[in-house]
Amino acid sequence: MLIRRPDDIRPSEVTPYRVYMNRRHFIGRSAKAAAAAALVPGLLSACDETERMEARPAPPAVPESATKGGPNSQERSWEGVRSELDEPLTPYDDVTGYNNFYEFGTGKEDPARNAHTLVTRPWTVEVTGEVARPAVYDLDDFLAPHAPEDRIYRLRCVEAWSMVIPWTGIALADVIRRFEPTSKARFVEFTTLKDPEQMPGQRRRVLDWPYVEGLRLDEAMNPLTLLATGVYGRDLPNQNGAPLRLVVPWKYGFKSIKSIVKIRFVEEMPETSWAVSAPSEYGFYANVNPEVDHPRWSQARERRLGEFRRRPTLAFNGYSDQVADLYAGMDLRRWY
């Protein structure tokens, strides 16, 4: 489901219910935001956000029976949900059981096995660099002013497999506006937690820890760019980058950094982990591009998990309409 197209059906309309657990979070956040706005009259933007959220129709009540029990009861509410190109969602177990998160091991099933050691509460996010109000936020305060949204996005891994995932999160653009980057800010750099106690994969120097990713400011401000807090209507499992991760659906998955502790606004292009690790293979931009192969394998096709035949990879992962303008005039072979 592509968003920000006025005529489109919003994902929230497709989704049968707002899932109970997340709704509670949502209400909690709204209450906090309202309290904050009441205490600090100058926080006008937060106030607006709160009003906007409260103006939304209340989500339909979910019968108690649908919220109890294992993941199945919640999955059911997503059954049959399809994104724009008639692509079914990747099952919850695959989304949460097969991914790369080298902080917990380099196997695809390692994150699900090992990420239980990550402590996601309390969690702080440092906002720093070229920004009017640098500060360290408790995660709840960080999220409070923003309305969570559901977005169904394709995810295309640089390894040529892909998924379709229903995220819940907040628009990064709203967050950036709130922190008021200075005129010097041209890039946003994100950093993952570094703590080998919690992230056993960091005991080996597979990458130069902590993991760092970045976006050009205009990429970060694009309406597609999401800071996700949930998947399938529930809180992000640790292995998917809890409690806060980036989702940039038109770029290869490694750009969508997980378990973020720092957001820094900078003037120079950040040195991102994979681009540092293997600069000839991974660039800063890492836009999904079927015409520019990885030096070691083709990017022309991909395997959508659950499908037998490879399917053609789409330019910008199918989001050209929303993002191709960002790269007008750029040589995408050079800026891979």
Partner: peptide, 20 residues
């Protein structure tokens, strides 16, 4: 068979151009 499903053009390209 399973991975490329006899996509000969891709297979030939892989063998010719990808050292691994």
């Amino acid at each position: 068979v399973l991975d490329q499903f006899f996509g000969w053009s891709y297979i030939v390209e892989d063998i010719a151009e990808r050292p691994f």
